[in-house]
């Protein structure tokens, strides 16, 4: 079966710094894939290159077999993207953003209206009907971003830190939606540095450290008998024991 996302040898260098160094990852269809790594490990850079938002120095990315860089139209119609910290059309309301994007994606007007209505109510954004996106809280921005990613009914979701700054109630809503998406045959890649969250949601894990894949496979393969957090700390070699307490903070 064609993988939902296949990344082969992706590399990216910014000036002197190699951000991503020949990353290979395969996301099987129907999997819930968690990409973990420290801040600055290269998660966002890898995912940006995988969905056509950043030009790689080398390597390729295929979404259901369609190359993101040589056949972008087909590849991009199959994927929904939630980038971290990117701007939106800030002076539109949530409904207007969805309408604009649905039409941009070439969906019929009625379908767009129907889906926008449903997404806004499921994600509890319909109360802020007259609020512009620029006035949204960080959590609301994540939710409208998720709605944008889901709008055209993609078969793969690529989500960069979808739970960052989201309140627990909204997080539960989002988890339900994402689990439903996978249960319905969709595939998800999400990046996070919260190990508990990845253990709770994902069936596959990739560990990225300093721009390279340190480990990848099913959750069981990667963590073995231990917790993901212990495995992760071992893999990236951050000695937790070496961390010193700040003496001047205690009385």
């Amino acid at each position: 079966m064609t993988p939902a996302l296949e990344i082969v040898g992706l590399s990216k260098t910014f000036g002197e710094k190699t951000a991503v160094d020949h990353v290979d990852l395969t996301v099987p269809q129907g999997s819930f894939y968690g990409l973990v790594g420290q801040n600055g490990a290269g998660k966002t850079t890898t995912l940006s290159m995988a969905v056509g938002l950043l030009r790689p120095d080398a390597g390729s990315a295929r979404i259901f077999g369609a190359d993101v860089w040589s056949a972008p139209s087909r590849a991009l119609s199959l994927v929904g993207v939630l980038p971290d910290g990117m701007a939106m059309p800030e002076r539109l309301t949530g409904r207007e953003v969805l309408t604009y994007l649905g039409l941009l994606r070439g969906l019929p007007k009625e379908v767009v209206a129907e889906r926008a209505e449903e997404l806004l109510s499921v994600l509890e954004l319909d109360a802020a009907e007259r609020t512009l996106v620029i006035e949204y809280s960080t959590g609301m921005r994540k939710k409208i971003g998720l709605a944008v990613a889901l709008l055209h009914a993609p078969r793969l979701l690529v989500l960069d830190e979808p739970f960052e700054a989201v309140d627990p109630v909204s997080a539960a809503t989002i988890k339900t939606i994402l689990r439903g998406f996978v249960a319905g045959g969709g595939s998800i890649v999400l990046s996070s540095h919260v190990m508990a969250l990845v253990e709770q949601l994902c069936d596959h894990v990739g560990v990225i450290d300093a721009g390279r894949v340190a480990a990848a496979g099913t959750l069981e393969e990667v963590r073995g008998e231990r917790s993901l957090e212990d495995t992760f700390v071992d893999l990236v070699g951050a000695p937790g024991a070496g961390a010193k307490a700040l003496s001047w903070l205690s009385r």
Binding site: V51, G52, L53, P72, S73, L76, V79, V81, P83, G85, M86, A87, M88, P89, E90, L101, L104, R105, G106, V148
Partner: peptide, 11 residues
Amino acid sequence: TALWLTLVAPG
């Protein structure tokens, strides 16, 4: 960076 939306809808 709202340009990303234009990039994911290339048509």
